[in-house]
């Protein structure tokens, strides 16, 4: 009875996750959403804190990140999730006002790249082929080694376990709108590999 309740709850979680994913899609992290990257090349000394202050003033409620372009620290990249033309123009004006070497807007000291969002499918696409191949080989391996258990226990149960564990994990991400980022993609890999190992251990226990 207890097992049936647990399975029912987990099934509900999976269904809710699928609905959330289909209707609302996955929530993407800042880096993978639509961002505006503003590249500023400095030809005089500057403090990154001053640039951050200007960004806060101009872009107000927007999410932003201000960092050096590279290890030479002679340029800054400002990444924001929203940036209207007026805000960009206002930001440019502030930079011209503060820094002598920025003479006017046409001098090319600032460049804006509008970076479209990454599609969730593009993030996971690289793993689709190896995951399918590995899962197929592992299932065939388990079917051969534990053939005495029969088709249902040696093949169907491991498949159900692998799919179930991963479906629950992905559903939790969808339901709680956890932002999909590099960390989440790697964590999904971790859960997938663990699910294969758990399926193997479980099938072995059944065989014993």
């Amino acid at each position: 009875m207890k097992n049936k309740v647990i399975i029912a709850v987990l099934a509900l979680v999976i269904i809710a996750g699928v609905v959330m994913a289909v209707v609302f899609g996955f929530n993407k992290s800042f880096e993978y959403s639509y961002t505006n990257k503003i590249f500023i090349k400095f030809t005089e000394n500057f403090e990154i804190a001053d640039v951050e202050e200007m960004v806060k003033e101009v872009f107000q409620d927007a999410k932003y990140k201000v960092e050096y372009m590279d290890e030479f620290e002679d340029g800054v990249v400002v990444t924001t999730n929203t940036a209207s033309d007026e805000q960009i123009s206002s930001f440019e004006d502030k930079l011209i006002e503060k820094y002598e070497k920025f003479t006017d807007k046409n001098s090319g000291f600032m460049e804006v790249i509008h970076v479209p969002p990454v599609r969730t499918i593009d993030l996971v696409e690289v793993f689709v082929k190896p995951v399918i191949i590995v899962t197929a080989i592992v299932i065939i391996f388990l079917a051969i080694v534990f053939r005495k258990l029969g088709f249902v226990k040696a093949v169907c149960l491991p498949i159900a376990l692998i799919l179930g564990i991963n479906a629950i994990f992905v559903s939790v991400i969808a339901i709680f709108r956890i932002p999909v980022s590099d960390y989440i993609v790697s964590l999904t890999m971790f859960v997938y590999v663990l699910s294969l190992i758990v399926a193997t251990i479980y099938t072995k226990r059944l065989a014993k």
Partner: peptide
């Protein structure tokens, strides 16, 4: 040994993938 073999299968398949993310994992 079955668990070790499963881990080896995962490692070998991912190693043969060109994409950096899969290759470095494998």
């Amino acid at each position: 040994i079955e668990i070790i073999i499963v881990a080896i299968i995962i490692a070998i398949v991912f190693t043969f993938m060109r994409e950096e993310a899969s290759f470095s994992f494998g």
